[in-house]
Design a protein around this nucleic acid. Structure first.
Lengths: 183, 183
DNA sequence: ACCTCCGTACCAAACGTTTGTTATGTACCA
DNA sequence: TGGTACATAACAAACGTTTGGTACGGAGGT
């Protein structure tokens, strides 16, 4: 079930997530879907959960590094460095559109962002404690700008993969992290 | 005509840009629209042009500053600092979704990004010549990261306006520009 | 000046498709 | 016997598109 939803999501996006498309993808009927999802809204919620689960799967792995190196690892996880990551990012960008028009989805996206920043925050704190980042910098602002730069690169890479190959995306993140170290 | 299209775009987004919605917005019939736009695709193209025109209107004003200050001014133009700018950004984010599924729209978005970066580039060059940015930094990378940070802030501000009020968005851009000045 | 013709600019209505949703029926298992 | 897990089919609504028709205004002939 989650497989079928993900396949529809990955190659058509959130806007084209339709009951019949999912049903066809799993060789079933729309009646079966309405049995599990009384309304379309429920299917969208489930699809959102599926996408988030796939995202977090990569995010919750253990790291053997701390501070800036850990921050770097988490940011690279989000970039479109592999075809799978690119598909993931396409899904999330399409979700942004859906969320703009739906207050409930917008709220979940707000929460997702805060969760992501919460994941990055301790490593910024550690980087400051380890002296990798000047202590007078604001933690919350660094987290927000790191997230911003990363998602900004994601969007540009989505529309211009030739100009933003994996090694350049990585280099841009590294350049950014380097500027964090200077006072 | 362009007024009606813009109104629909602004409060429903690209995904909900429909012939009937535009027709209703200008108190006309769908037949009239198909007279001017033989196919939906043509209406979408026109809507894209309308949105771009509104964007460029703000972008092509003359500046009495150069270098980093000019770069700052252009980046601030894009941020969601006013309700109008917020509406504009909602439209463009919704356009990203439409562009993901349509190669032709994707190509126009690729071009739009390159045009935007082209607008920023000379000011980065000037900043380097004026010694505001170390000469060993890559111009193209700085332009790309500035665009990325800005659009990343736009998206976060769209879903969390409380956490990203205008003054914080501005501060985050200023912090970024400050890190550019250090070697 | 008048009439005819024709293209432009629309409207109203309908068409076929796709969408979410609902109703009815059926197999199966406890 | 009754509830769960489906399939089939139909439904109304919304969509892009097509059709048939009306109004008008300028061009050309008489």
């Amino acid at each position: 079930m989650s497989e079928a939803v993900w396949r529809v999501l990955a190659d058509r996006g959130f806007g084209q997530l339709t009951l019949r498309a999912v049903a066809a993808e799993m060789g079933a009927s729309t009646g079966m879907l309405t049995h599990y999802f009384p309304a379309k809204r429920d299917l969208v919620r489930y699809a959102h959960a599926v996408a988030e689960e796939r995202t977090l799967a990569a995010l919750y792995r253990e790291l053997d590094v701390t501070g800036l190196a850990a921050l770097r690892a988490y940011l690279l996880d989000v970039l479109s460095l592999t075809p799978e990551a690119t598909a993931m990012n396409r899904v999330w960008v399409s979700f942004w559109d859906a969320a703009i028009g739906d207050p409930e989805l917008a709220a979940t996206e707000t929460a997702r962002y805060e969760r992501w920043r919460g994941k990055l925050r301790p490593h910024v704190v550690a980087a400051i404690e380890q002296g990798e980042i000047p202590a007078d910098r604001d933690v919350e602002d660094i987290v927000a700008s790191a997230a911003a730069l990363t998602h900004g690169l994601v969007v540009q890479a989505l529309f211009d993969p030739d100009r933003f190959p994996p090694d350049r995306q990585t280099r841009l993140i590294d350049d950014y992290l380097r500027t964090l170290t200077c006072p």
